[in-house]
Amino acid sequence: MLDQLRAMGVFACVVEKSSFSGAARELGITTSAVSQQVRSLENEMEVTLLYRSTRKLSLTEVGQAFFHSCQEMLAAAERGKIRINELRDDLVGDLRISATPEIGAAHVIPALSHWMSAHRGLKLQFETEYITSDLLDEKLDIAIQISSSSDDNPLLHETLLAKVDQVLVASPSYLNQTMPISKPEDLLNHNLIPINTSNHFQELSFQHGASKEVISLDMKHRIETNNVFIAKSLCQNGHGIARLLYLDVQKDLMNGTLVEVLPEWKLPVFTLSALTLKREQQHMKIQRCLDALKQYFGQLPGGRVYQEAS
């Protein structure tokens, strides 16, 4: 039975990685061992789970149904591990977390959803504003922030979660009805929709991905906001160009409601991190929460978000 469960996990990894070699790298075993595990499942059940070709793998109808069962099995196993950790570590009491509304709703809640469900002894409070004194006074346990530099407060510990690109985006309708943009200087003929929560919010600084040429612009703007959701909505409705985090527009770029402007020119990269009060021994509930966040952000799909190298 354990061998079959292990093979199901290998099969699910093959599907998620879309290749035997990708699954092998993820699992730390050889490609031939991965192939053998999948073949043993097919032989045992007398079905074909995958169509194999030199270009790609695709699921059969039976394989698709079986993949869902494998996902349910792996989710059940993960819930079991979480429950064991809860019983072992006695995760109870209050846990207070801060994040921006955008990062909180789109990522922190999904990252912690199963973990919250498993730890019924925890009482969680989510805040959308953060000031350093809240951590120092222990009014907050974890503050998730995104910035261009590390926090240098000696009383705080910073856990790096991810590096995140900024991207310049506009709606297809806006780009079709305005002057073309082929180089950074062309942006001076357009309106920026800035988020005014930082200094010099109207300035753009680019570096070309190939030539490394650096260009800085002071953009004009007619509309501004202090909220990412508003900026993105204005952008989607054709009112200008916005500089947003890739985390906040990844789905919009994939479905075509927004288009990246000047993708060959890179904006400064931001750091997503979790701040906690520096202690000789961190509370177990805080450490377990940080572990869940690191696991989520380290596995986010998409080339513009990646786990910080350890």
Rank of each mutant, 00 (worst) to 15 (best):
I230Y: 05
S18N: 15
V167C: 06
S150K: 07
K212I: 01
V92K: 15
S149F: 00
V305P: 09
P184R: 06
M1F: 07
G303D: 15
S310L: 09
Q207C: 12
Q4S: 07
I230P: 01
A106M: 15
R96I: 11
L49Q: 04
V167H: 06
F270R: 15
D94C: 13
T128S: 15
Y296T: 14
S40L: 10
L161C: 07
L156M: 06
E86A: 13
M8W: 04
M45V: 02
S21K: 15
K285M: 10
L5N: 00
I144Y: 00
K139G: 01
V108F: 07
I142N: 04
G22K: 14
K220W: 09
R279L: 12
E158V: 01
I109N: 14
Q236G: 01
E127H: 12
V38P: 06
L87D: 12
W115E: 14
E129H: 10
T54V: 08
L50V: 10
S182K: 06
F206C: 08
F67V: 03
A231Y: 02
E61V: 06
A292G: 11
S273P: 05
R304Q: 12
I181C: 00
I97K: 09
E224P: 02
D141S: 08
E127R: 07
H190V: 00
L262W: 03
L272F: 10
L122H: 00
L253G: 03
A7L: 05
L161H: 09
F20A: 13
Q250D: 09
F66D: 02
D218S: 13
I103E: 09
R279V: 05
S98D: 08
K220P: 06
K278R: 12
L50A: 08
F126Y: 05
D252L: 10
S171G: 00
V10P: 04
A23Y: 07
